[in-house]
């Protein structure tokens, strides 16, 4: 029989090493997000929110350990609105981030969520979301959560929250709302483990509906 300490060490050490690499952010590299082309058409609607980010400086870089990739691609997507008004849920993780009409999914009005199942727990570093970005608008009460509980009742971590007045009852968030563009929005996760990602929103400044063009989840398995 092999020394049980050696066997245990053989199992533990790679994990410790992996964790060390994961947490040393100085070694993280740009995952290289592929941004779609900009597309603004139509009569613009003024977006007036008290917590609107007016910096107009898009963030283009998400850093993660070597080997991190978009784990959400082609994964199953579920939603509080299982029958979208426009499009299909599977379009949310199909890699098509275009602003065109055939590329987005429209959920019902008011408070809605979509959830991505990565099929197994993974190391997560960042989430990128593109809501509808063909017209200038801001989505309201956006929250991004991760958990290993598919019902998001236990072990839930908010990684982004601009629900400043706690409309969802998930706690008031201090993150800023933003005007949608082809650059989407990057949410830092840090380095956390989870299987499920849930994004919430409560309509937008152009109408009461909720839209998703694409969600990417960068991590390693």
């Amino acid at each position: 029989m092999k020394n049980p300490f050696i066997v245990a060490s053989a199992l533990i050490i790679p994990i410790l090493v992996a964790t060390a690499q994961d947490t040393d952010k100085s070694k993280w590299k740009d995952v290289g997000i592929d941004f779609p082309k900009p597309m603004f058409v139509g009569t613009p609607v003024a977006a007036k929110l008290p917590n609107l980010d007016k910096s107009k400086k898009p963030r283009l870089v998400l850093k993660a350990p070597e080997g991190a990739e978009n784990l959400a691609l082609d994964m199953e997507v579920t939603s509080s609105d299982p029958e979208p008004i426009i499009g299909d849920l599977e379009m949310i993780c199909d890699g098509d981030k275009d602003g065109a009409d055939g590329s987005y999914t429209e959920l019902g009005p008011g408070k809605q969520w979509v959830q991505v199942d990565l099929e197994e727990e993974a190391n997560l570093y960042g989430i990128v979301v593109w809501h509808f970005h063909k017209n200038a608008r801001a989505y309201i009460d956006v929250i991004a959560q991760i958990s290993n509980d598919p019902e998001f009742k236990t072990g839930v971590t908010n990684v982004f929250n601009n629900d400043h007045d706690n409309s969802f009852g998930k706690g008031a968030g201090k993150d800023l709302a933003w005007i949608e563009t082809n650059h989407g929005r990057i949410f830092d996760v840090g380095s956390k483990k989870a299987r499920y990602i849930r994004l919430l929103s409560n309509g937008n400044t152009a109408n009461e509906m909720n839209h998703y063009v694409e969600i990417e989840v960068y991590g390693t398995r």
């Binding site: 008004i85 426009i86 429209e106 019902g108 009005p109 109408n207 009461e208 509906m209």
Partner: peptide, 14 residues
């Protein structure tokens, strides 16, 4: 049909 679904759905939902 795509526009019609959107119209019916959006008007009813709102």
């Amino acid at each position: 049909p795509r526009n019609l679904r959107a119209g019916k759905g959006q008007i009813a939902a709102s």
